[in-house]
């Protein structure tokens, strides 16, 4: 335990003093601030005259403004934080020749990977928390809306999901840093995987859907077919943690969203029946709706870490 603690503290200090962290943090903070400011001002215009706008606070995170919403931004570029924090975690030590020295200290070998992972996760936590606080503060400043306990809960859960999501990418990066002895290789591999999951899975999903449930563009299709098409697309695209994350967070952040599905079949009677009371979901229900997603995110994060852990434990320590 002691070893892990010492390593954790050193790694944390390393992260916070490293240039790449400072650049990344500055970049993300800047983008967040700009996004929030734009969203804030456009919301302010929209909200003029509305007495007590509810749910406005959440819009700070979900409203797309001119470019993209903050949630989308994190979904897309959040993985970079994890990757940057972890892609050279092990192989740099190995190349430096410090790994065998470290392993020869009277600490358990897993203290090294645990400490590194923990430091990364804590860095992610600090980063996200400060961004969210910043945005909330800015929101309070520009809009003057105070979040209720429900909204605070939503933001907290959003924070937790985001931490797991980025931690997953941290795990991936650390795994690559174990497998690839070359730092550049592991960085490239990590970025390739990120691009694959962020861009190609969506593309592959529509390909798969078109192949399995083709839809004739000219004559259109009945609802059932469209639905099946959407389901295939959804199922495939859920292979991407990004999709998993953005679906989960958009449902958590928007209480009016009642499902993570993008297409649903609703009969006319159901429509009428639903529109009768159009209340926002309570937080608990929102959580339950996305719970499988959250669980899945947590699981892949844990499993990714477990794989890194085992790989590291079984690997030869010797340098070179």
């Amino acid at each position: 335990m002691r070893g892990m603690w010492v390593i954790y503290r050193k790694e944390l200090a390393d992260h916070f003093s490293s240039n790449r962290f400072v650049i990344l943090f500055a970049l993300i903070t800047m983008v967040s601030l700009i996004t929030t400011f734009m969203v804030g001002t456009s919301l302010k215009k929209e909200l003029e005259g509305i007495a007590r706008p509810s749910l406005v606070f959440m819009m700070l995170f979900t409203s797309t403004g001119d470019l993209f919403s903050l949630a989308q931004f994190i979904a897309f570029f959040g993985p970079l934080i994890g990757l940057v924090l972890g892609f050279d975690a092990i192989n740099r030590e190995r190349i430096n020749g410090t790994l065998s020295k470290l392993a020869a200290q009277p600490i358990y070998r897993d203290a090294i990977i645990n400490g590194k992972f923990m430091a990364g996760v804590v860095t992610i936590k600090i980063m996200l928390l400060s961004i969210v606080l910043l945005i909330s503060g800015l929101g309070l400043f520009t809009l003057g809306v105070t979040p209720g306990p429900e909204e605070v809960g939503r933001v907290l859960i959003y924070l937790v999901i985001s931490i797991f999501y980025i931690s997953f990418w941290l795990g991936v990066a650390i795994l690559f840093s174990i497998f690839f002895r070359n730092i550049a290789t592991s960085a490239l591999a990590a970025i390739a995987l990120w691009i694959f999951f962020s861009f190609f899975v969506t593309f592959g999903a529509s390909l798969a859907a078109n192949a399995l449930v083709p839809i004739d563009q000219n004559q259109g299709a009945d609802a059932e077919r469209l639905f099946a098409h959407a389901q295939v697309q959804k199922a495939v695209s859920l292979l991407s943690p990004m999709k998993l994350y953005s679906d989960a967070t958009s449902t958590i952040l928007d209480p009016m969203r009642k499902t993570t599905r993008s297409l649903i079949l609703i009969g006319p009677m159901e429509r009428v029946s639903m529109d009768r009371f159009n209340r926002p979901l309570p937080l608990g229900q929102s959580i339950l709706v996305v719970f499988p997603y959250i669980v899945f995110l947590i699981l892949i994060t844990l499993i990714c870490f477990a794989i890194s852990y085992l790989a590291f434990m079984r690997q030869e320590i010797r340098s070179g």
Binding site: D14, S17, E93, I95, N96, G97, T98, L99, S100, K101, A104, S319, G320
Partner: peptide, 12 residues
């Protein structure tokens, strides 16, 4: 105590 061949240190 172990002094590996090509012992490394944290350059920073």
């Amino acid at each position: 105590g172990y002094l590996p061949e090509n012992v490394g240190f944290y350059g920073d």
